[in-house]
Design a protein around this nucleic acid. Sequence first.
DNA 1: GTGAAAGCGCTAACAA
DNA 2: TTGTTAGCGCTTTCAC
Lengths: 337, 337
Amino acid sequence: MKLTIYDVAEKAGVSISTVSKVMNNQPIGKKTKQKVLKVAKELNYKPSVLASALTGKRTSTIGFLLPDISNSVIAEMARAVEDRAVEYGFNLVICSTDFKSEKEERYVSLLRQKRVDGFILAAGFRNKEVVSELLKESVPVVLLSEYHPHLSINTVTVDNFMGGYELAVHLISLGHRRIAVIAEDNSSSQERIRGYRNALQDHNLEAHEDLIVISDSSVEHAQRLAGDLLDSLHPPTAIIACNDILAVGALLGAREKNIKIPEELSITGFDNTLLSKSSDPPLTTVEIPIRSMCSLAVDLLVEEIEKRNERKQAVLMLPKLIRRESTGICPMKDRNE
Amino acid sequence: MKLTIYDVAEKAGVSISTVSKVMNNQPIGKKTKQKVLKVAKELNYKPSVLASALTGKRTSTIGFLLPDISNSVIAEMARAVEDRAVEYGFNLVICSTDFKSEKEERYVSLLRQKRVDGFILAAGFRNKEVVSELLKESVPVVLLSEYHPHLSINTVTVDNFMGGYELAVHLISLGHRRIAVIAEDNSSSQERIRGYRNALQDHNLEAHEDLIVISDSSVEHAQRLAGDLLDSLHPPTAIIACNDILAVGALLGAREKNIKIPEELSITGFDNTLLSKSSDPPLTTVEIPIRSMCSLAVDLLVEEIEKRNERKQAVLMLPKLIRRESTGICPMKDRNE
DNA sequence: GTGAAAGCGCTAACAA
DNA sequence: TTGTTAGCGCTTTCAC
């Protein structure tokens, strides 16, 4: 049978409460402490987290809800969150929600039954009611790469607006006037589009609504949409894809039509993933400070768990434009518009 | 305060054991059952998994140890494992071990303190002693994409030997004689190399040890190694990279030297990830049946947890060669050797 | 400084 | 059919 605090107590000739105190570093006579520690080591005794949590202590596990762990950007976030969490002694239970409100609700409920110490809700958590509920019952939560306005909650996001803006300005400065956008249907993309629109406006350019298209998250779909865009009567000279996967799709779509990148068409990605470095040509993209964001998210959560946080905060991190070879000056013939 | 079985019992006017029985679907009078269920719903009562686990029931969580969740192949496996686990009502706690024996040991110990119901040890779990220990104490474990010979343990792997063999045969049939290998330092790569060697042997070709190089898992390192290989006096006409990431490195290394793929050099990957489809040219690679493997691993684990498994098994799944444009016939001038 | 005992929320004999 | 009660392994007063 698994060995318990009783076994240690007996073998050390003390009471279980003494053992408990030793294991929790509470004041205890030096000699007793040594003895207990020795016995514990001999027996290879490990306290049960379950039993301890049942008396009100932590489970030392965090619920990490994300849309899809197989997505590479998300996976990278997961690793960053995990690393930081481990530093604090926490483990992660990971749940892929596929942007489904029901799944979000189910997982949160389930993990609460398992008494996780807190939640990190990442990248597109939809179910606002669940968040409010958590807040109301003062369960520690932080929103990561997702912003829910009008909610008093710790939040760490990247300035997607800025990212979209910078990308658009970069292209405009290269002479592009007809800039298309391939976006996903989520709030990050929305913000990126908003940045793009603002950049156009600041340069007195008109936004062409037909140049903004929504894709699902597959390469194939983006490829098709890019193809359509390029086949249109008045095709764009540049395409901003709202992430690197979509950008690869655009790249493939252009290659299919023998359009040269960047001579005839500029393409940009977003996220600065491995894809953007390995593609041909390498993609101009936007780097997101994933590790810092994730570390901070964990920091905020742990503060909240330890109930020593002064106040809630919403942190907006700045992205950074990475210029590579997929963008170039606009072909002369398309310069006038 | 959190509400408990006592609250439900009181409000429903029954004893806690009655409530317990209802919640666990044990035989109980229909009317009482209805009443209890109704009250439970009203109160939104959710039994504590902790307390229940403490009395000997499951925690319904599985420990999933893997080298690095940010690796895209691993992340895909994680998703597949998660999906299947959820079907059975289990959650996953994920731990990245970076192939470090100490981390493996620490995490296993920690998760056992948390009383996970079982472990899935994936892709390169090194610490054999930990595995033996687990086995000895009959903790449910399954090895995924990792094979420990001489251990009576449920295992699901892919036939890496076969993958390496097929890749080599494919290249040999294209006329290649000097085929290099860029591998990682792990057992999968070892097997793939073994397959490669066997193929050479079966075709009466000599293996050149200097053509087999070991890389870490970064694109950059593989790129450098490929460069060195190509700069050598007698460069290879084909490179088998032991995964798609390394293959992208090789691609980049060749591009750097203006070597045309596949006209002057053939390159193959392994794993059939998104990278292999999006690269230029798309990579000939080997597809691994990840989802089936992961589903099966979970099935085996759950069987073991439910103690209704007939016997342990080691399942070897077959990989599949995917031909794309990165491999071509060997240049004439290099045909003789 | 150390121990006895109550209790965390639940399950499972065993009684009634 | 339902309730009583003794744990599960630990923490935490409160005495000693």
